[in-house]
Design a protein around this nucleic acid. Structure first.
Lengths: 243, 243
DNA sequence: GCAATAGTGTCTGTCAGACAATATAGG
DNA sequence: CCTATATTGTCTGACAGACACTATTGC
């Protein structure tokens, strides 16, 4: 493909206006429900609709790097589990010009979620309502104060993709620990799994499964401040494998 | 994020040279091994190394659309299972300029694989050698005529991603049928699963599993031309669900 | 002791692997 | 009948769900 290739390097499309952005699904768990952080758009297009935090990819910046920067700038979050989700590039997805967006998923534990809210008061937490609908997931809506928020661009599709990705990885990857602090009880871990999968789980079976997988290690300490029997604290053991 | 947002629309990065390409992993099965089709690079950079077929995304073209076009132009394949894999955008991945590549995975059955080879004789089939290494997969090499091919750009990483994606989806999605003709025997389907997962499977268990999943329906006919008991032919039943 | 939750033991149904038995094509 | 492969039957072990039981804390 010599000449062919050579010529295509000078294809006009190369010089057509094109921008690259990253959009980030900032997800945490609130009251047992997956919750995302959204920003209201003040300008056209999609004025007054709600959008994922995002930003343009800089000239000498990698994609993961850009996502990390957006995380810092828009939510004051220094570190979080961050993974690429999918790339959206329909020509008309942004009416202004061709903007291709690489969507990322960031998972926040309770502390990071709270810090993000403090760091940027414009962020609105919205509960993800996922009609369990079949099994492969259906449309997702983001709800705040009892009302479904109108979303900008193709951001509803991005949210749906985020939920599917999480559900798919939950069982065979230790991704669920990203929602928890360093030390946690088995009940907390089970709550995470129930929130993401959207269904109740059996306690003894869950405990067996987690211990058998070898993902967690007991710390030897127990939680404090309960008025009943305190649960044992565990830590994620990255020495296992996966993800 | 009014003013902020407004200003960022005019960020210089928007006008920095940036190109968008799709690269396609054309995968089929040959002699029980995953095999991909590669093109030799005649020009710099990475001259004489092997690369995935790819092309620039045109001005008013969606990403899936661009991938379909590359499939037609470079391999004369009219239709195939095509899914987006991952987007690679390290700033220096192409020494000439910033080129972001959206990788796609195309699955070919035996007929499509043969047609591609006829349609473009420059395509070289290379066997994917996947050292089973642990479980999450390791580095992948593409081997032809007994030798590992030197790959261009970050295409080795793309191949590794393709193998992982396939392995991950095989059990809970009907993706394996993309490698087979419309009618097939259970033995053929099992061969596909063994080739992708890289391990031998139990015949009765495999048969039960496939029938229970409801993905396949018997056609009532049997294969012909065997010198032994002919196997029943099945069809993929898309009425089930998933993918 | 009481309330509340943590953690364990046990039964049972589902399902995959192993392996053997039966079925059927061509010769 | 013989060979080779398809297809089915059955046993067994791994494991998840259900549910009841025991343990431990604050009060």
């Amino acid at each position: 493909m010599t000449e062919d290739d050579f010529l295509s390097r000078y294809d006009p499309s190369e010089f057509a206006p094109l921008a690259l952005t990253v959009d980030i699904v900032l997800m945490g768990l609130r009251e047992g429900r997956p919750t995302v952080l959204l920003l209201r758009r003040d300008a056209h297009p999609f004025q007054d609709r709600w959008a994922l935090p995002g930003g343009f990819v800089a000239e000498r910046e990698g994609l993961d790097e850009a996502a990390g920067r957006v995380l810092r700038d828009k939510a004051r979050i220094e570190s979080a589990h961050l993974e690429q989700l999918y790339t959206f590039g329909a020509p008309e997805r942004d009416p202004r010009m061709r903007i291709v967006s690489v969507a990322y998923l960031a998972l926040l534990n309770e502390r990071a979620f709270g810090e993000a809210l403090l760091g940027n008061p414009a962020l609105l937490p919205a509960t993800l309502e996922v009609p369990w609908a079949g099994e492969q997931g259906g449309p997702v809506s983001a709800v705040a104060r009892g009302e479904a928020l109108p979303l900008a661009f193709d951001h509803a599709a991005i949210l749906a993709g985020a939920v599917l990705r999480l559900r798919g990885k939950l069982d065979y990857s230790p991704v669920g620990f990203a929602f928890l602090p360093a030390e946690f009880t088995l009940r907390q871990l089970q709550d995470v799994h129930e929130a993401i999968s959207g269904r109740a789980l059996n306690k003894p079976a869950f405990r067996r499964r987690m211990l058998d997988k070898g993902w967690i290690r007991p710390t030897g300490t127990r939680e404090a401040g309960t008025s009943f029997r305190p649960a044992e604290l565990f830590r994620f053991d990255p020495a296992s494998k996966g993800d």
